[in-house]
Design a protein around this nucleic acid. Structure first.
Lengths: 196, 196, 196, 196
DNA sequence: AATGAATGAGGTTTCATTCAT
DNA sequence: CATGAATGAAACCTCATTCAT
């Protein structure tokens, strides 16, 4: 089982508290509109002190992204390992990704998507490499489903469509509504392999 | 047929040129990282002169969004009117939305999604009202398909999933690749009504 | 009799209307905070058109001041001419100056005092010369009263004290209150020659 | 005795130095024509550094005014306490106010009068409340003189006339001339209680 | 005379980052 | 490690003035 930490994937060290606060603020106001003072105030230190933990504001952003990719890649791995059939693996992947996106790591995931551009080219490349591992896990499952004839379309494209579907969920999903994440995962599975 | 103008939906007046340049820059670097000087330089005027056309930088953003919503709402209307069956209407809607998103209004559409937060609450409300009309057109078609039994899931949710799918397309679609927008629209239709 | 014109001392030509509007705005918001656009809007023209009437914004300020000094110098002259005794002349001067300051030329007079610093050195000198004539009229009367033994203090100082007294009146005087300008002039006379 | 500090009422902290420089510049060029860069240059820091001490340029203006009102209210209190008869108290008040206006706090006092309008409504109200205390001290003395029959006119009006007289003094008084502030105070007392 | 778009200098303020304490 | 004053670059916006029409 993945250890469940403070904000998840982020521990309770000064560094961890900084990252949690930053993720929250970046998600709320965007990276550019969050000041280093905002972050410092959120954890109760002075703005200058932040630079003992991170070399720059952008480094904080990168750290948030790196942590959340690592944490959710591990979650994906465990989701796959927990199932036998390709179809069950797909549902598990979707369920895990939805959990990432609207559940415990929602803020950091939102930041990952919306503040991507704020990363320097250099760091974008590094984060992209990590993201590649995550995507590999997805493609393996989709390709095996495709080989089984579960759907006709290109697995690569299907993954892109699923990425869009799950990525948009935080913009409309109501955690207190009648639709559960399990239901939603099922509906999404049906978009891949057909209804029933 | 919708008239095809300069950047589309935006004419060749000074104001129109400003809007095109702004959309391009906002898409490229983000609203916050685009300076008023950048925009002015892109159209060959001085930064101060911008404020004869728009009251503030944010007003430019809003104008870009308003224009693109209007233009694409009209495109949706014509897409629906051009088809008879509900299924064909769905394909036409998807085709039209893809055209908006990766075709002639790609930049402004990207801005609409990614820079939404940069709008003041007040302007968000105004833009949301316009966006509501656009969504209504979608829901009518999906609901009639649903009544016909073309799919079981909630039409409202299906629309949300489609929004995610199309919205993510610019992040991976290659206009020069072998997959055409028509092909892609077909693949998406299948996600709703099943693979034939 | 002094001709009574539009705002007083200012006629109904385009130039006159500009000066009235400017005096009003300068008094209300100060010279620096009044924009050339404010003035233009107040008379219903475009900002660029102002420069057909005045070379610069500062020229408008100077014109307001020049007009009001001329107008009120003439009023002083007539006040003196209308009385025989030095004491009656003093009361008439005070009454006239109060009229300038809280009556028909109140706005321009306030501008004369409060926006003096906004004039270039050059124009300050020119305005000072005009103001000198005005002050001469005062000193003549005060000196004759002094020679008559009506008061002991230096007439020059007395004039300074009176200038302060009258100049401050707009900050507290209530035109609709029970104290009339005539009453006030009497009280001021008593400050010079004693209470009865 | 009131302690005599740097510019008076303003100490030698960074904030105090900023305030002194600002008072000097505001008096010299007016609030609107003094730039934040001017103030910074006058104390030898960068313009951005000012905002560690004051939230806005207007805040500096308010601080200057607040300090000078407090300082001079205390001076007034001590002036009254130092005398026994109402007539002597009046002279002491005048002497103290003249000291404020042409002496140690001359610059800040000038700013208080001439830049009043540059304060936001909100801050005007706050400053007015402070000023009210100062004026109360004056009225108490004038009312007791009035009860003693030292003059007939309304004490409230007399205070207004004195305010005008003293307020105008910086515009003509020559500190190196033969007229001392004590002499001037005496002349002003005579304007209230008669020459005798 | 009038217009109104354009200029361009300059204003206040923000903010990531540094560094002496 | 923490502080907080200072930096200095750069951002948005204002505005008197010009000028082609």
């Amino acid at each position: 089982m993945v250890e469940s930490l403070a904000i998840n994937g982020i521990d309770d060290s000064p560094r961890g508290r900084l990252l949690s606060a930053a993720a929250h603020l970046f998600r709320d106001k965007g990276f550019d509109r969050t000041t280093v003072r905002d972050i410092a105030a959120a954890v109760g230190i002075q703005s200058g002190s932040i630079f003992h933990h991170f070399k720059s504001k952008e480094d904080i952003l990168y750290a948030v992204m790196e942590e959340v990719i690592h944490f959710n890649t591990e979650r994906l791995r465990q989701a796959i390992a927990s199932q036998d059939s390709a179809r069950d693996k797909l549902r598990a992947l979707l369920r895990a990704e939805l959990q990432s996106i609207v559940g415990d790591t929602a803020e950091a995931m939102a930041v990952l998507v919306t503040e991507w551009r704020c990363l320097s080219d250099d760091k974008q490349r590094k984060a992209l490499a990590l993201r590649g591992i995550y995507e590999q896990l997805w493609l393996q499952v989709l390709e095996s489903l495709h080989r089984e004839g579960a759907f006709r379309a290109d697995p690569f494209i299907i993954r892109r469509l699923l990425t869009g579907m799950t990525g948009w969920v935080p913009n409309w999903f109501d955690r207190d509504g009648s639709l559960s994440l399990d239901d939603l995962a099922d509906i999404m599975v049906e978009r891949v392999v057909g209804e029933s």
